[in-house]
Write a protein that binds this DNA or RNA. Structure first.
Length: 109
DNA sequence: ATTCTGACGTGGG
DNA sequence: CCCCACGCCAGAA
C-alpha cells in the first residue's frame, strides 16, 4: 500500500473527504499520528491544486476559519467552493462548522 | 549550519 | 470567546 510518506497520507485522507463536508488540519494530523505536527498537514496541502486532486477547500483550521483561502487562485474561490457544496461561510468563517465537520478518526478510521 | 516563517493546535490567563 | 506563548516539522533565504 502507499501511505508510506506523511504527505501521501494527508493526500489520501483529504481525497476521502465527502462532498459538503469539512475537516481540520489537526484532525488529519491526529489521524496520522502527528497530532503536534498539524502545520505539516497544511504544508503538505501546498502541493494540492497543482497536480493533486485534493479538495483543500474542505480543509480548514480548528476554528472553521478559511485560513488558507489566500493560497487559492482567486480570493473567494475557496469560499465559493464551500458555498457551492451547501456550506455557509461568513467572513471566512464556516457557519455550523461542527455540523459540517468530518472526523477521519470517526468516519474513516 | 543558522534563522525565520508557515494553510495549526493546545494550554494558561 | 479572546490574547499570549510554546511546540511542531519542513522548507526557503
Amino acid at each position: 500500500m502507499a501511505t508510506e510518506g506523511f504527505f501521501e497520507k494527508v493526500y489520501e485522507v483529504a481525497k476521502c473527504i465527502p462532498y459538503g463536508r469539512v475537516t481540520s488540519y489537526g484532525a488529519i494530523a491526529r489521524y496520522l499520528g502527528a497530532s503536534g505536527s498539524a502545520r505539516m498537514v497544511g504544508w503538505a496541502m501546498n502541493g494540492s491544486g497543482k497536480d493533486t486532486d485534493i479538495p483543500a477547500h474542505r480543509v480548514v483550521n480548528r476554528k472553521g476559519l478559511l485560513t488558507g483561502k489566500h493560497h487559492f487562485s482567486g480570493t473567494h474561490l475557496m469560499q465559493q467552493l464551500l458555498e457551492s457544496e451547501g456550506i455557509v461561510v461568513v467572513e471566512n468563517q464556516i457557519q455550523n462548522f461542527e455540523k459540517h465537520f468530518w472526523d477521519p478518526m470517526k468516519e474513516l478510521r
